[in-house]
Write a protein that binds this DNA or RNA. Sequence first.
RNA 1: CGGGGUGUGGCGCAGUCCGGUUAGCGCGCCUGCUUUGGGAGCAGGAGGUCCCGGGUUCGAAUCCCGGCACCCCGACCA
Length: 489
Amino acid sequence: MAKGVTPRSQDYAAWYTDVITRAGLADYGPVKGTMVIKPYGFSLWEHIKASLDGMLRESGHVNAYFPLFIPKSFLAREAEHVEGFAKECAVVTHTRLKATEDGQLIVDPESRLEEEVIVRPTSETVIWSMYKKWIQSYRDLPLLINQWANVVRWEMRTRLFLRTTEFLWQEGHTAHASAAEAEQEARKILDIYRRLAEDFLALPVITGTKSEAEKFAGAEHTYAIEAMMGDRRALQAGTSHNLGQNFARAFQVTFQNEANEEELVYATSWGVSTRLVGALIMAHGDDKGLRLPPRIAPVQVIIVPIYRQERDKTSIQDYLTPLKARFEECGIRFAEDWSDNSPGFKFNEWEMKGVPLRLEVGPRDVENGKVVLVRRDTGEKLFREVGRVADELPRLLDEIQTELFRQAQQFRDQHTYRVTSYDEFKAILNGDGGFIRCGWDGTRETEARIKEETKATIRCIPFDEQPEGLTCIYSGKPARHEVIFAKAY
RNA sequence: CGGGGUGUGGCGCAGUCCGGUUAGCGCGCCUGCUUUGGGAGCAGGAGGUCCCGGGUUCGAAUCCCGGCACCCCGACCA
């Protein structure tokens, strides 16, 4: 195996998969499009998950679990929804296999299901079939349920973490007594997603509304957080939908309001997935590998001992004992690398894994009462007194967190353009690419034409849009919205 | 579903055109010794249905026919 990864500038896609495999995040599964999330990658996901789960609980949501299998007929209940997902559903048609005389294993034709079931691509339909049973009165509302689950979407083209046939996510499904409350919920969740991205993943995002063409199948409105990756393409990092009464209507979920009138329930759904891991890799990674934000890094500090002889090793171990005790008191996630690999190898290895801080201790440090710290974000070397380093670490980790965010934000801003002519628009997309902020006449036709001609799509209509006085980049008509265009994953 | 490519020890590849020793190289792995402040050195060693199935031939990784799988590029998508 080569020593490093393919440089980003040479082949971004190869760099991305190299980093994932070399850092030990994931591996390809045996079935096309599937992925094994390895312990280090899974630990990263679990930290992301814990961060979000905490925020969801604080805002009154509870976790539950709904079945993987859904009757095929459920999907068809909501017209747009079936349209959106039918093409990518895995379908279970039989319930068993059997061995033939010549030892082959075949699907037992006698086990054919009367009603075929689908593997959930998302759970709106099963969940609303249950909500029908659970909701009668306004007193049953709001219902604020979240589930952490796997879903399957049989995609044509897959990429590790960004789009796999099966992926892990959380999906929230809420029911409300008024349209206004559902709208407020959808927006509240989007803000939680924004905080997850910005405060935990150090990933600056743009919040906004999806165009009709890009919204979720079955939603009234879709809101999203959009982030810029290192190749200046956009990645949708989370979505929140106001479903209006569409699913309540499809599943006949009504409640009696305070005026004793029967009314359809108002709904939202929202989700973020393991795609966030892909976002982290592409937003922060460099040619040495991952760079993880301390708040979600599985290992925040890697201790690398450096020694020649057994007695040095022993003295380093003793030297580290009180320091490690202090780390534990401070709640710092640290690990030690006592493997037989050379120090240089370990440095590269842990940089590949994106550990925010490396702490080196060698005989010279033991003699002088020092340690050496090296920041992954800046490469800076810091020499510190062993007795004081634990007190400083929480602040230093915060600083790294902030710095990663700052770098990503600066990168995004440098590659965000406001343009007024379609020629400029195309020049940017044919060049380095980036986010383009411009006017749009609000028509599906314009959006479709631009996509066809440039591959760029409307990522969102940002909440802070200022369409007044703008003209449409394509048609020249007065702009209905100011939007962000970009090529997207 | 179109277009392109690749299937050979764990990984990356050479060998295939032009059939012929025991299928080779780098990395990794195992053992031992020496090393260790930016991917250590030497010595020894283990590890292969050459994607699968037919065919041609005295002889097939190599030629012929058929299949399968995966990767990349496009249309669809969190």
